[in-house]
């Protein structure tokens, strides 16, 4: 959920844009991270882990752990927590290892 009113902070949000997550249309704000947009929309599972395929969500927030590896516009292993949202992005849950583009 988004914080609409805060006693101390003002949030400067980019313009609203639509993107898809696992085929579903979601609205986020341009320039915020993909994870911020997904979490705001109530999406908590971003990937399934490499060996045991356990659900993983937002964790480190600085692009260093592997919990938010997602498939974005066909590219695997994109760190959604540090990747800015763009209009029309095709974002998908990554299950296990990623794939290289042409294989």
């Amino acid at each position: 959920m988004r914080i609409e009113k805060h006693p101390i902070l003002d949030f400067a949000r980019g313009k609203k844009v639509k993107f898809t997550f696992d085929g579903r249309e979601i609205t986020g704000h341009e320039g915020e991270t993909i994870t911020a947009a997904l979490v705001a929309a109530g999406v908590l599972t971003l990937s399934k882990s490499i060996k045991l395929e356990r659900p993983r969500g937002f964790f480190c927030g600085i692009g260093r752990c592997s919990s938010c590896y997602m498939v974005v516009n066909g590219v695997s292993n994109v760190r959604a927590c540090v990747t800015p949202l763009e209009k029309g992005m095709d974002v998908n849950t990554q299950v296990g290892r990623g794939e290289i583009a042409s294989c």
Binding site: R2, L9, A36, V39, G57, F58, F59, C60, I62
Partner: peptide, 20 residues
Amino acid sequence: PGVYGAGGLQTLMNVDGVLP
């Protein structure tokens, strides 16, 4: 999902303005 480090959660909450 739902177990967060305080720093990561702070980023989400105070920078992105989003609560999980």
